[in-house]
Design a protein around this nucleic acid. Structure first.
Lengths: 160, 160
DNA sequence: ATGGTGATTGTTACAATATAACATATCATG
DNA sequence: CATGATATGTTATATTGTAACAATCACCAT
């Protein structure tokens, strides 16, 4: 994620892609699902399920935990979002086209989550799994730390 | 993890190493902490905090959630256990000597968790983090699937 | 030995995350 | 417009994890 970008593009792209893929797949991007996806895309932070619940209530007065978790399940099955395991939280998937296995870089400072393909990491991992004779069904690679911007800020602060 | 092994060795080694490291570090491996570590090492499955709570009650009648979570915090700080993020569960660390960043292979069938060094994966990841200019504080790599034994069993079943 | 200090544990209460189960409504299609 | 599948409403509860403060214990200097 570059620090400065036109985020409304991100949202629009995500919604358009999801909409199109749902049509292709014959599944329904209902109001609730779309609203949840839109709320997740409000920024590049990982979002908690109960935060989504609070934020969807103006739109869906009847919303309950199950409302959110069902929408999240759907969006995950369709590959539109990732679950950040180490945070019990969720982020929009930036890359619906290619393989849905990515590296997540989670900044402790600004809370942004950056998604990266990291082909070489995935290749090395695939080799390691062959060595281990382990048949993988799903992979999660999550790194916590400071993103480029925040580590710069940090350095400026301590040298000031 | 090989399927057949003398597990009492695993437990003894883990407890001895922990004990020795605590002495070196001037921290206390109290009864509770030792008992929790021993319970975690009862097998190579990931263990849930509240399962530990039930299982420590015969030994510590007063045990409450905080009892377990405090012990888990301590054991993690000391690097004696890993938290399996994708399971909200914990396993003993098999490798106290080298870097504490490993690949966890989690079998859906038998629930065993295998820890692997995966140097090449870590190298590729380090390179990717340099590319991203991301300063890592902690890493979690978790793969769900079938271990060697269980995938063999599975193949035998479907060919039978 | 003894008293002070920080570390550890006891205890109560509660917050945060997630699911089960069943009723109702909506949709897509014949 | 009837029907089955999909989606949502609703209530209740299970699971996971913390906060806050009191009591106790371990260690060290005197």
């Amino acid at each position: 994620m570059t620090h400065i970008h036109n985020h409304s593009n991100c949202i629009q792209t995500a919604l358009n892609n999801a909409s199109q893929l749902c049509s292709q797949r014959g599944v329904q991007l209902t109001d609730i699902r779309k609203q949840v996806l839109e709320l997740i895309w409000e920024n590049h932070h990982a979002v908690k399920a109960y935060d989504l619940l609070e934020r969807i209530k103006p739109l869906q007065a009847a919303a309950k935990p199950a409302t959110i978790y069902r929408a999240l399940d759907f969006l995950r099955e369709q590959g539109f979002i990732h679950r950040v395991e180490s945070l019990n939280a969720f982020i929009g998937c930036c890359d619906l086209k290619t393989a849905h296995e990515q590296l997540l870089l989670i900044c402790k400072q600004c809370n942004d989550v950056e998604e990266r393909h990291a082909d070489l990491v995935m290749q090395a991992l695939a080799q390691e799994l062959r060595n281990a004779k382990f048949v993988a069904h799903s992979k999660s690679i999550e790194v916590h730390g400071l993103c480029e911007n925040c580590s710069q800020t940090f350095n400026e602060e301590i040298s000031a």
